[in-house]
Measured scan of single mutants.
Amino acid sequence: HDTTVHINGLRIEVHGASEEILKWIEEAARRGVEAEEIKRWVEEALK
Rank of each mutant, 00 (worst) to 15 (best):
H1P: 13
H1F: 12
H1C: 05
H1K: 12
H1D: 10
D2A: 15
D2T: 15
D2N: 14
D2Q: 15
D2E: 13
D2W: 15
D2R: 13
T3F: 14
T3A: 11
T3W: 08
T3N: 11
T4P: 07
T4F: 10
T4V: 15
T4K: 06
T4H: 15
T4W: 06
V5M: 09
V5Y: 04
V5E: 03
V5W: 02
V5H: 04
H6E: 15
H6K: 09
H6G: 04
H6N: 14
H6W: 10
H6T: 15
H6M: 12
I7H: 03
I7T: 02
I7P: 02
I7S: 01
I7W: 05
I7K: 01
I7R: 01
N8I: 05
N8K: 04
N8P: 06
N8Q: 08
N8F: 01
N8E: 09
N8G: 14
N8H: 06
N8L: 04
N8V: 05
N8Y: 01
G9P: 03
G9W: 02
G9Y: 01
G9A: 04
G9M: 02
G9L: 02
G9Q: 03
G9D: 06
L10A: 05
L10S: 05
L10Q: 07
L10M: 10
L10I: 14
R11E: 11
R11Y: 11
R11F: 09
R11I: 15
R11G: 08
R11D: 11
R11S: 14
I12K: 01
I12F: 07
I12E: 01
I12N: 01
I12Q: 01
E13W: 09
E13K: 08
E13G: 05
E13P: 09
E13M: 07
E13I: 11
E13Y: 11
E13A: 06
V14H: 02
V14T: 08
V14P: 02
V14G: 03
V14D: 02
H15G: 13
H15V: 13
H15A: 14
H15Y: 14
H15I: 13
H15M: 11
H15C: 06
G16P: 03
G16R: 05
G16T: 05
G16H: 07
G16Y: 07
G16I: 05
G16F: 07
A17V: 09
A17E: 02
A17P: 04
A17Y: 05
A17T: 04
A17C: 02
A17I: 07
S18C: 03
S18R: 05
S18V: 06
S18L: 06
S18T: 14
S18G: 08
S18N: 10
E19L: 14
E19P: 15
E19C: 06
E19R: 11
E19H: 12
E19D: 11
E19K: 12
E19N: 10
E20R: 10
E20V: 10
E20H: 10
E20Q: 11
I21H: 02
I21W: 05
L22T: 02
L22G: 01
L22V: 06
L22N: 02
L22I: 10
L22K: 04
L22Q: 03
K23W: 08
K23D: 05
K23M: 11
K23E: 08
K23Q: 09
K23C: 05
W24Y: 08
W24F: 05
W24I: 02
W24C: 04
W24L: 04
W24G: 02
I25Y: 01
I25S: 00
I25L: 06
I25T: 00
I25M: 07
I25P: 00
I25E: 00
I25K: 00
I25R: 00
I25W: 01
E26A: 14
E26R: 15
E26T: 13
E26S: 11
E26N: 08
E26I: 15
E26Y: 15
E27A: 10
E27H: 07
E27Q: 10
E27D: 14
E27P: 00
E27F: 08
E27W: 13
A28K: 02
A28E: 02
A28N: 02
A28P: 00
A28Y: 10
A28Q: 07
A28T: 01
A28F: 14
A28S: 05
A29G: 05
A29Y: 15
A29P: 01
R30W: 12
R30P: 02
R30Q: 12
R30I: 11
R31F: 12
R31E: 06
R31P: 00
R31G: 06
R31N: 12
R31S: 10
R31M: 13
R31C: 07
R31H: 08
G32F: 06
G32S: 02
G32T: 01
G32W: 04
G32A: 03
V33W: 14
V33C: 06
V33S: 02
V33D: 05
V33E: 05
V33A: 05
V33K: 03
V33Q: 04
V33Y: 09
E34Q: 12
E34F: 09
E34Y: 09
E34N: 13
E34G: 13
E34S: 14
E34I: 09
A35F: 14
A35H: 06
A35E: 06
A35K: 04
A35P: 11
A35C: 06
A35Y: 12
E36G: 08
E36L: 13
E36C: 11
E36S: 11
E36K: 08
E36I: 11
E36M: 11
E36A: 12
E37N: 05
E37V: 12
E37D: 10
E37G: 03
E37I: 12
E37C: 06
I38A: 01
I38G: 00
I38F: 04
I38V: 04
I38T: 00
K39P: 01
K39W: 11
K39V: 10
K39T: 05
R40P: 00
R40I: 07
R40K: 12
R40N: 06
R40Q: 07
R40D: 02
W41T: 04
W41H: 07
W41V: 08
V42K: 00
V42C: 02
V42Y: 03
V42M: 03
E43M: 15
E43R: 08
E43I: 14
E43V: 12
E43Q: 14
E44C: 13
E44T: 10
E44D: 09
E44V: 10
E44H: 13
E44W: 15
E44R: 14
A45W: 15
A45R: 12
A45Q: 13
A45H: 10
A45Y: 14
A45G: 03
A45F: 11
A45P: 00
L46T: 06
L46G: 02
L46S: 02
L46Q: 04
L46R: 03
K47R: 13
K47M: 12
K47H: 09
K47D: 06
K47P: 03
K47S: 10
K47E: 07
K47T: 09
